[in-house]
Amino acid sequence: MPWRLPARSRFRLASVALTLPLALAACAEAQFAAQTAKAIQQPSAKTQGYYKVGDPYEIKGVWYYPTVDYSYTETGIASWYGPGFHGKLTANGEIYDENDLTAAHRTLPMPSLVRVTNLENGRALVVRVNDRGPFAHGRIIDLSRRSAQLLGIEQRGTAKVKVDILPVESQRLAEAAKQGTLIATAEAQQPQPGPSVAASPVASVRAEALPPPSSTQVARAPNPAPPPAVSRPPASAVAILANSGTQSNTGQLETVPVEQTRIYIQAGAFSDQNNAMRLSNTLRRLAPSQISETRVDGQTFYRVRLGPVASVTDADALLEQVIGSGYPGARVVVD
């Protein structure tokens, strides 16, 4: 049976919510620091942004390590952001537009292209990563408002998702950004032409009329057939956006089969099974705990997971308990 937050704990959460406005005034500076990855200044003109990976950084006591990872794939919970940041600078210097198909990610290069699949309704959409975040516990990607609308996430606020980077397209986007241009998402996804092949050399031939042999009828040669028409390849429908961060806000939704998934809290992963067992025994007081084995790059790891839990709300509550028990690296996973 999925783990649910006890009723007494739900009452405590409600009590905390009543006192939240007072607490917010006292911790304004801490909240300001947590939002530094999304710039708050209002720019005076549009800008295209730039390529950025960035150095390791710390938010609310948690360290994040940006890296170039073109094999990235992850499941978890997505959220969305918009009104409070619309028109302001993103982490790589673009102008954030909540109506563009973009997203914030904590570690992927900017810009990158990722496919976000809503595991609850099967909708999939390609979005461009151009910002840092989310920094709320238990979230793996922060979508623009338009992206959330198309994926069916806006009303609920969160959803179980799978995020996969598009390696070839992301590298193409990154190279263009390094050269000072921003390629629209649709163009980055277009197949590139193959290498050009030089034409074979043609020998010169000189024509010379010869007299026909005697008593031989000569038939008139038929007119040569006209050469086949060669159609020119159409010009790209999507131009390189040299001075603008805008792109189509309609996108191209895909639909994939929906499979049953469950939410867990992953407290840690260890190469030593004994360490995994110790952590599992320690956290069993919070919720049902289990150890699962997985292999990454040929190495075996033992994952400690709590759950499954019944909902995103329950997952958030359990995650805070695990983090509060001294395990800040715990995260929400969907499997």
Rank of each mutant, 00 (worst) to 15 (best):
A310Y: 07
A242I: 10
L150A: 07
S214D: 12
Q266C: 06
A229W: 01
A91Y: 00
S112H: 05
T250S: 13
T282S: 14
S214R: 13
T313H: 13
V334P: 04
A287R: 07
A91W: 00
Q155G: 04
A45G: 10
Q299A: 13
K46E: 15
N281T: 15
A267Y: 03
G93P: 06
N281C: 03
D314T: 08
S215E: 11
T47R: 15
T36F: 00
C27K: 02
A209M: 05
L241P: 04
R8C: 01
E169C: 06
A37R: 03
A26K: 07
L318Q: 10
V68D: 07
A28W: 03
P257S: 01
Q192I: 04
A203D: 02
A103P: 04
P193C: 09
A209C: 04
T90R: 01
E154T: 08
A136E: 14
A17F: 01
A17M: 01
G82I: 03
R128L: 12
P233D: 12
L13S: 11
L318S: 09
R8D: 08
D131F: 03
Y264T: 02
A219H: 03
T75Y: 01
D164Y: 04
D314G: 10
H105T: 00
A176S: 15
Q273V: 11
Q48T: 15
P222K: 00
G324S: 13
R278G: 11
I153W: 05
A26F: 08
G54Q: 04
S280T: 10
G76R: 02
G76P: 06
A26G: 09
G324W: 12
R305C: 03
T185E: 14
T19P: 01
V114H: 07
P328G: 08
S271A: 12
P226F: 00
L286E: 15
S248P: 08
